[in-house]
Design a protein around this nucleic acid. Structure first.
Lengths: 347, 347
DNA sequence: GTGAAAGCGCTAACAG
DNA sequence: CTGTTAGCGCTTTCAC
């Protein structure tokens, strides 16, 4: 309607119909079916025809239309991955693990970002499902009812990752955030800390972070203790936020002897701020983090934290999906990969 | 073929054909066309029919098949984004900028990761194009011939981002990495440093990092100087790598008075290592980074670095694509967003 | 405002 | 190993 011919920059709205398999077939003097086969299973076509097809494909610049292929075969070779965030360093690791496996099996990964919103997650799930994916990997085990229903009735392999649930939709691989929090709590108590503060982001929902806190509280409760202070932030976790948080904690509750941060970003920011303010870590204040990101061991004092098997979670989740797609049964539908306490010098 | 009926976990290979628009139409007592319209432009359907359709959709759990829709309309509402890495903190910022805009315009972002390989980039481009995207955003301006050809002939809006080129495929938005490197070089020279070492990752190719070095070399050359040392690493950049690099530089060339790291990760690792080894920064050794990531200003001494307009690049790139799709001409096809020297205490 | 017909480009299923 | 026949489920186009 508003093509600006003169500049040449406004391309034709109606994309010039691409080269089709039939054109290739005509040029190569074969049937379209043979072209189709040559693409998906070259061995199933005689080398003679294959050569002629290859020539035609190259000459015409043919690119198969996957929409048509998907519509006809109802297999698209795509596996959407739905995660809450990209900036959180935790997810790139997971995604890397996933993409390596998928790529090796000629599956295309589609990435969706929920920004920690269950509503956006639901919208993403619906959109992705409307693309007829072969399988789907989704972070977390907390979803809206509709999301669960859609995924459950989709008929494709669904892998929920990072957290573990009692009633997964289908496959589930991760570790218990409650147990991890408890482990850290037990460790801190074992080191003699008693007045422990908790700091976590309250992203509209980061249920997992909250579960870690719950676990820590459990550990305290087992000794008839409770957190000396709790700080929940709305903002996205960052070093700066951790720095601010530790300052607030110390100001409001000078008696606190240890702070558990729900993630390493916060914790590292706090450690740095302490060193700037001359607060001795861990003598005056112990600091613990969560995730075991690279930089946690690069600062001094090294951060005491929980290392999570992120890449492995991604790898195994993708493999489970791949196995299913291959028609093979998956031996363990629910896998708890655990975690590891990494004792640094900060707590 | 190998359905394992007993466990129930091996779903039917042939997914039970989903609810179609016709079933909805039958139930609502309308034509399929009306169902289609009700979905895409509710206002164009009488409220009476719309209500009946809504009821049927809800009752049947109808989800439109986008493959069929895309095939028929040749518009899919998708915009693939091809980037070299996710773990590099630079890209999440860009992707965030992009996704915000796309989401607001009901476009779906598809993310592809090249791992800094032009071959993988080519494969990704081909795959994505085979999904009939509405537009495409791709990091960098260095591509294989075939990638360029495919993108150029695709007929859709193509935005190359982060770097700027003399002959972009279509739209181009970013900043000059050469100029940025030069700016840093000029700054370091202005501060009196003369024996400057360069450290960069030699990811099978991170042309942009190399261009930053080239720019710095230019600045030196303008004063008849050249780098005192150059260290190129194959591995992925990390704090650890930066720490190792600075140790090597100091060991091999104790006369070096400043080190330019091609990214902040390396630089921060180096600063930390120096503080551990008692090397005074910047008195004994000045350190400069590149990108302006959050943590660069959270360590002490604060890192001197170049802040790049990552989010803005993503935002504008997406907007350009959106404008094009709306049929409007884009005023500036090539945009240099510049960069900003952030002077910290490290150099 | 609504519907009927005719594909979009590919692949499943069969026949040869 | 190769070709033919039918669609996949939607949207375009054009009547009504």
């Amino acid at each position: 309607m508003s093509d600006i011919g003169t500049t040449g920059q406004s391309r034709k709205r109606r994309r010039k119909s691409r080269v089709t398999a039939r054109e290739v077939a005509l040029r190569a003097g074969v049937g379209t079916m043979t072209v189709s086969r040559a693409f998906r299973n070259p061995e199933s076509v005689s080398s003679d025809l294959r050569a002629r097809i290859d020539e035609a494909v190259a000459a015409l610049g043919y690119v198969p239309n996957r929409l048509a292929g998907g519509l006809a075969s109802s297999r698209t070779g795509t596996v959407p991955v739905i995660i809450p965030s990209l900036s959180n360093n935790v997810f790139p690791d997971i995604v890397d693990g996933i993409s390596g496996v998928l790529q090796a099996h000629n599956l295309q990964m589609l990435l969706g970002n929920t920004r920690y919103s269950l509503e956006e997650e639901e919208a993403l799930a619906a959109t992705f499902l409307s693309w007829s994916p072969d399988g789907i990997i989704i972070a977390g085990t907390d979803h809206t009812e509709r999301t669960r229903a859609m995924l459950a009735s989709s008929g494709i392999p669904v892998a929920e990752i990072i957290d573990i649930a009692d009633d997964p939709i289908d496959m589930n691989i991760g570790f218990s955030h409650v147990e991890a929090g408890k482990a850290m709590g037990t460790y801190l108590l074992g080191r003699g800390y008693r007045r422990i503060a908790l700091v976590a982001p309250l992203c509209p929902r980061d249920q997992r972070a909250l579960r870690r806190l719950a676990g820590l509280r459990e550990a305290l409760a087992a000794r008839d203790l409770e957190p000396t202070a709790e700080l929940l932030y709305e903002d996205r976790s960052s070093w700066r936020l951790g720095a601010e948080a530790v300052v607030r904690v110390v100001a409001e509750r000078p008696d606190v002897d240890a702070v558990f941060f729900a993630n390493d970003d916060l914790a590292v920011g706090a450690v740095q701020e302490c060193s700037r303010r001359g607060i001795a870590v861990p003598e005056q204040l112990a600091i613990a983090g969560f995730n075991g990101l690279e930089f946690a061991s690069e600062i001094r004092p090294r951060l005491t934290t929980i290392v999570t098997p992120r890449r492995e979670i991604g790898r195994q989740a993708a493999e489970m999906v791949v196995e299913r797609l291959a028609g093979r049964a998956v031996d363990a539908l629910r896998r708890d990969l655990g975690f590891r306490l990494l004792v640094g010098e900060s707590a």
